[in-house]
Nucleic acid binder design. Structure first.
Lengths: 200, 200
DNA sequence: CAAATAATGACTGACTGTCGGTCAATTAAA
DNA sequence: TTTAATTGACCGACAGTCAGTCATTATTTG
């Protein structure tokens, strides 16, 4: 009857158009007008697709995280040892490749703490479950291969959240955390404890 | 020649007067006028003592954390085993007693991510160092007593940040994290690995 | 010593500019 | 003609400022 736009697609397009802006600036330092102008739309149109600025961040994190997960899946397939697989898992927190997503994720976490909306909680919960199962699978395989001790399974949740904690702490402090080094160090030490040693 | 008030003291007084308001509401849902009214001062006066709302949260977290640390120190003195000491350490994240501080700390972390100011980073860095050394001392004593393996020392940073990560994740998700249970479970499993067993 | 006056920090809320969000008007496809 | 899409002018709310007031103390003067 009239122009029918793919709402979901246009939402993605708008979000992507603002990506650089968001990556390089904090969301609440930006105005809706600025964002709309960047996306080449009117202010009112922005509200046609997003309820507020927070939702824009949400959309972008959503998009980039899917992309990131695909890459991660590929990379994981090329790694053999359980220890290394876990390390690949944590690369999100320091790799240059994930820098943009990380910047947005930081904002997203802050928003989730300050003004949690149901969809965001649901998304984070789904992410948690998704990654948890991923790690679980890696660990299960490691146990099945006899590479690591069965007790490793009990450590998954703590290991997983350690990454998040290290990440947040590194952002909120200065000079006390070297993400890449500290995370890998921790993983190594944990694996020294749970890997089965032939001799010893 | 005029009234001289103890600026620092009054700042504390104002912050404390707003404590309940802040604990039960998110900082950016509150207006300065509302806050000023609660503290029984004019809006202009608020700005005489605080640069913005964020600083109010900062002041409160500062105050309550000092209080919390004293209590924690006492409690730690009454516990013997290294494992239990570490658990006392994590009580912040779930104890009823620390609920108010936790609510404010949540806001503070979010602010630190969204609009980090130098003083906040400095404060968080100092906190990190302070707690890290505290845990380090506990672990060192445990090692000296022969209770746990020397390798435990390498796990401190990861253990410490796990708490923070678990906390943030519990706030951002629903139904996947039981803070008290999951933290203690993790601590137990780690200690099963690093505690020296007589028989075995 | 006391009264008057000066000096100044503390305090205030009216005011201003900005921004988030709405909506009436407009465009354009079907 | 109908309906979806788009828009920016408009509005109310709020953060932050500032010119003016007040309370207290210092100083001068009788």
């Amino acid at each position: 009857m009239a122009i029918i736009v793919d709402k979901a697609q246009k939402k993605r397009d708008i979000a992507l158009a603002c990506k650089d802006l968001l990556v390089h600036s904090s969301i609440n330092a930006l105005t809706i007008s600025e964002i709309a102008k960047t996306a080449g739309i009117g202010k009112g149109t922005f509200y046609e697709y997003f309820k507020d600025k927070d939702e824009l961040v949400f959309e972008l994190v959503n998009l980039l995280m899917q992309e990131h997960n695909s890459k991660k899946e590929q990379k994981l397939a090329s790694v053999e040892r359980t220890r290394e697989k876990i390390k690949v898992f944590y690369e999100f927190f320091y790799s240059e490749e994930a820098a943009d997503l990380r910047a947005l994720y930081k904002e997203f976490v802050a928003i989730s703490l300050l003004a949690p909306k149901q969809e965001m909680i649901a998304f984070q919960t789904e992410c948690f479950r998704f990654y948890y199962q991923w790690v679980e699978k890696i660990i299960d395989e490691g146990i099945a291969k006899g590479e690591i001790l069965p007790v490793s399974k009990e450590l998954i949740k703590g290991m997983y959240t350690m990454g998040e904690g290290m990440f947040i702490a590194s952002l909120a402090t200065e000079g006390v955390i070297d993400l890449k080094h500290d995370i890998n160090r921790y993983v190594d030490e944990i694996f020294e404890l749970v890997e089965k040693k032939e001799s010893r």
